Simulated scan of single mutants.
Amino acid sequence: MSLSINTNTSAMIALETLNATQTELSATENAVSTGLKVSTAADNPAAFGIASQMNGNIAGQSAVNDGLSFASQVVSSTTSAANQIISVLNTIQSAVTSLGDNQGSPTSVGQIGDEITSYLNQIDTIARNATTNGVNLLAYSKQGTGGTADGNAITANSLRYVTGLSGDTATITGFNSMIATDVTANASLGISKGTAGGSLAYALGLTTDKTMGGNISGNVFTGTTGSSTITSGFLNKSGTSSSAYVSAMISQVQNALNAMTEVTAALGSNTQMLSSMSTYGSTVSDNLTAGVGALTDADMSAESAKLTSLQTKQSLAIKSLTIANGQSQNILSLFQG
């Protein structure tokens, strides 16, 4: 090979090798520092595009999972309230039963009536307070999305939530109407069934006072409270007291208990479904994350070995370029005397 001071082929080849090694080394160092073999579209357009779409799905599934968690909280709060209301109804049944022992004493009947009405107010208070972010599945909101005047900011009586990335939804309908439907007719007391559209005690058929948010003034058993003389209520139907009325009143409370038991059964079913969907949602998120990792994550053991190799090649390329550049200096020796 001829020697030339204008064209140093060896230096050109060494420089090309060094530049190629430098480019590859830069990509490897980026993979090592970021942990990604595909961090931009320039690295792998197809993989980057697919990973970007999957990252969007991961964000969407995260929102779905958050919605399922919120729905679970609403159902959990409602379940706790329903169980507490059942406990209060059991106490009411005991109080109603005691009416049969005090029919001859209007004062005692009035006191028991006050006690029962107090329990009914407890039921409505528990129901109204079972509100999570404006959603209440027990109380009834006449104003719909406008909320209620009871200070509990109930804006929805049903719960709708997204179940998956495709946008499918599920709805848990408020139980006020279902409760009213489950309270069966009681001809002895002159009541057809519970009525929806007011307080929970009203839906349970235990009071004629449907106002939501205010204090209940009486119950269907002894009538208006606060008076030692009972002038209304089922205990004094047709102006006479009868053990048959006591039996019918106990039946009325049992109807209310059965209705609330149906609520807890429905809530239990929804709890199981939400738990299953939450578990599945977490699995979907994990699978999507693993898929993105398979497309973009760097194999750190391989990248480490590659980095060592490229650093060695870089050193050799620099050495080769130094030797090639020295060839031009060797030409001077040909002209020394």
Rank of each mutant, 00 (worst) to 15 (best):
M1V: 15
S2F: 14
M12K: 09
A14F: 07
L15V: 11
T21C: 08
E24M: 03
S33Y: 06
T40L: 03
S52H: 04
S52I: 06
Q53R: 06
M54K: 00
N55F: 00
N55K: 08
S62W: 01
N65H: 00
N65M: 01
S69N: 14
S72R: 11
S80T: 15
A82C: 02
G100P: 08
I112A: 02
I123R: 05
I126R: 02
A127I: 08
R128C: 03
R128I: 07
N136S: 10
Y140T: 10
K142W: 08
T145C: 02
T145D: 09
D150M: 15
T155F: 06
A156M: 05
S158R: 05
Y161L: 09
Y161V: 12
G164S: 15
T169I: 10
T171P: 01
T171F: 02
G174F: 06
F175P: 04
M178R: 05
A180N: 09
A180V: 13
D182F: 05
A185Q: 11
S188H: 10
L189A: 07
S192E: 11
S199V: 11
M212E: 14
G214I: 10
G214H: 04
V220H: 05
S227I: 11
G233F: 05
G233K: 02
F234V: 15
Y245H: 13
M249H: 04
V253H: 02
A256E: 02
A256D: 03
L257W: 00
A259T: 02
G268P: 05
T271L: 06
T271N: 12
L274S: 03
L274N: 02
L274V: 08
L274H: 03
S275K: 10
S275Q: 11
N287E: 07
T289I: 07
V292Q: 03
A294P: 01
L295G: 05
A298S: 11
A305P: 03
K306W: 05
L307E: 03
T308L: 06
S309D: 10
T312D: 09
A317Q: 04
K319I: 09
S320N: 09
T322V: 10
A324R: 12
S333C: 01
Q336W: 04
G337I: 12
